[in-house]
Amino acid sequence: MPELTRTEVEEIALLARLRLEPDELDRMQRELGAILEHFQTIAAVDTTGVPPMVHAVPMDLRLRVDVPEPSLPAELALAGAPRREADLLVVPSSIAPGRTGTGTEP
């Protein structure tokens, strides 16, 4: 397994949306490296033909009837929101300043 570089740690932190201070990044690189080292034990195991176990107890998906239940009132749904305007949640804009429009990511 490849060595964990500082750049890689930074990339993962961005992917995970975790702001890490420089000392945290250092420590993370060290500690994750040590943990990954430990994972060498399973890299060597031949698992050809062994099915991955996704669920601890085998079962099929159960199906629910298509009948609505009452929604949470907006007031309750938004009660914990750090920022809101009327009945909308508010976040910093995700697009370049000056542009408008609506859009949903991917």
């Binding site: 009945d87 909308l88 508010v90 976040v91 804009s93 429009g101 609506t102 949903t104």
Partner: peptide
């Protein structure tokens, strides 16, 4: 599906 984000100035508004 995801909810709907509307961009308004420096903010985005979210309706789920």
């Amino acid at each position: 599906d995801a909810g709907k984000t509307t961009h308004v100035g420096v903010s985005s508004h979210v309706d789920l």
